[in-house]
Design a protein around this nucleic acid. Structure first.
Length: 491
RNA sequence: GGUACCUUGGCCGAGUGGCUAGGCCCCGGUCUGCAAAACCGGUUACGGCGGUUCGAAUCCGCCAGGUACCUCCA
């Protein structure tokens, strides 16, 4: 089935029909993390957003090359250009080699992403692995005349660029406003204009990370890594570039500038930006001190958290909001997501034991259509989830004998849930208890419940209630049936 | 100060000119010895004031409140 996918393009501020540059193939580039600390909740938003994009494009049959970089150099701390490199500073604080810092936090980022069931990208290039390519970008910008050297550093000449191209077209900014509003910062005497930005920085003696270049012993400046790596792996024109909204300016604006300056045209056809996560209505941010690490969510150790939340609850919680909306965190909202996910997953399990009839009283085709329509409308996952919950009611009704389904529809329904719940939304059944203990546990519980059956037969309610209540207190859920029982161990 | 966005029921969140998503919570009912689960039903909405329209949560204006970006940020 041919799907007409609409993607909201931040550049045009409109939903546009997605047509890949090369039929059947999609090039997807997403700004990854700067690895100088453990991943927090904010990192999971773009990761999950573009995992959804990646998964859905693949589901539609596209061959996707998904590139997500690891930034391990080149992001400066502090306001002025002469601040430290984040990685270098962290290395000094932790008494580590810079690459040890990089390795440590790359590992923890990948571990968290796996926990969230985020599929690994096809290529995960690092900035330090592409110094040569970045130097080449700087060289080309110089060659085209859109940069100048100043004391061993190279600056992008924004004013000159804006004569020939539109600087600010992505973020809706205008250069004159920017110039008149630019803060007076120290260390800018090397720049011709406040709007200019360094694309190569001469290293000061205290810098731990530096490389030789035609201009100085130094390190890449801002925004060059993405253009260098996206061009290398996806070509001079590629389909989708994603990232957080906070990167629109200056990062992505500067990427466009470097791309136009070196290639003479835009590289990116569809710009996608996920919105921010807020906590009590305020953005999470390192400088605000209100960010919660993913590991803290999974263990429930942060003071703001009432309890631990499993990675799948975090994932499901995010998918219940559209990626372009802000999403406000609260314990109440996460607990609601946890219960909802449990209800959804129970229904998915029921699919395997649903009674089959000779005719259907349910409309699987409409449900299927509604799910695809939601995804095709700029990846509207909350609508998909809502549709899946409509289906949960359908599944439960069939299980209760109030509706019926034929074999053909049941196959379609199973495929629908498999495709959307597992393949596209990327949800997983919660991990089961250790297998070796499972069998013993089953036996013990069955024994107790059989005793309870006997007590019930004798109308010994005190005994039967005691067994049930104490099992419930231990975390079991007991369901009485007409001629027996069912039980599950929650969590 | 400049620019952009947002304000939906107890909570989270879709929708974006008429047919009032969905989840969680709450209340009733069916079932049950009682519960739980499931199912059925119900309650509570579109920040305020104007305007356009046969009709506005949806379009326009003003006001109020909030958020983000403006070289740390996902």
């Amino acid at each position: 089935m041919e799907q007409q996918l609409l993607i909201y393009n931040t550049l045009s501020k409109k939903k546009e029909l997605f047509v890949p540059f090369t039929p059947g193939f999609v090039g997807l580039y997403v700004c990854g993390p700067t690895v100088y600390g453990d991943a927090h909740l904010g990192h999971s938003r773009p990761a999950i957003t573009f995992d959804l994009v990646n998964r859905y494009l693949q589901h539609l049959g596209y061959k996707v090359r998904y590139v997500r970089n690891i930034t391990d150099v080149g992001h400066l701390v502090a306001d002025a250009d002469e601040g430290d490199d984040k990685i270098g500073r962290k290395a000094r604080v932790e008494q580590l080699e810079p690459m040890e810092v990089v390795q440590k936090y790359t590992n923890s980022y990948r571990r968290n992403m796996t926990q969230l069931n985020v599929l690994p990208p096809s290529i995960e290039p690092t900035a330090t692995g592409h110094i040569i390519e970045q130097i080449e970008v700087v060289r080309k910008v110089l060659e085209k005349g859109y940069a100048y050297e100043s004391n061993g550093s190279i600056y992008f000449d924004v004013e000159k660029y804006s004569h020939d191209y539109h600087y600010g077209k992505l973020s809706g900014r205008n250069l004159d406003d920017m110039l008149s509003n630019t803060r007076e910062l120290e260390g800018q005497e090397e720049k011709h204009s406040g709007a200019d930005f360094a694309i190569w920085k001469k290293a000061q003696p205290e810098h731990l990370m530096h490389w030789p270049s035609p201009w100085s012993e130094g390190f890449p400046g801002w925004h060059t890594e993405c253009i260098a790596m996206s061009t290398k792996y996806l070509g001079e024109t590629f389909d989708i570039h994603g990232g957080g909204m906070d990167l629109m300016f200056p990062h992505h604006e500067a990427e466009i500038a470097q791309s136009c300056a070196t290639l003479g045209h835009d590289s990116v056809r569809y710009w996608m930006h996920n919105n921010m996560i807020t906590i009590n209505g305020q953005k999470m941010g390192k400088s605000l001190g209100n960010f919660i690490l993913l590991d803290e969510f999974f263990s429930g150790t942060h003071p703001l958290l009432d309890q631990a939340y499993s990675p799948m609850v975090i994932r499901f919680f995010m998918l219940q909001a559209q990626y372009r909306s802000t999403l406000d965190f609260s314990n109440e909202a996460l607990k609601a997501a946890e219960k909802g996910l449990e209800r959804l997953m129970k229904a998915v399990e029921l699919l395997d034991i649903l009674p089959v009839s000779t005719n259907s009283t349910v409309d699987v085709a409409s449900l299927d259509k509604a799910c695809y329509e939601a995804m095709n409308d700029d990846f509207n996952s909350p609508i998909v989830v809502a549709n899946l919950f409509d289906g949960v009611r359908m599944i439960n009704a069939i299980n209760d004998g109030k509706e019926s389904i034929d074999a053909d529809d049941l196959v379609k329904l199973k495929k629908l849930y498999h495709d959307f719940v597992f393949d596209i939304l990327g949800l997983q059944q919660p991990e089961t208890a250790v297998a070796s203990q499972q069998g013993i546990l089953n036996g013990v519980v069955e024994l107790l419940l059989n005793l309870r059956m006997e007590a019930k037969a004798n109308k010994d309610w005190a005994t039967s209630d005691r067994i049930r209540n104490e099992l419930t207190a231990l975390g079991f859920e007991i369901k009485d049936k007409k001629d027996g029982f069912e039980w599950t161990l929650k969590k």
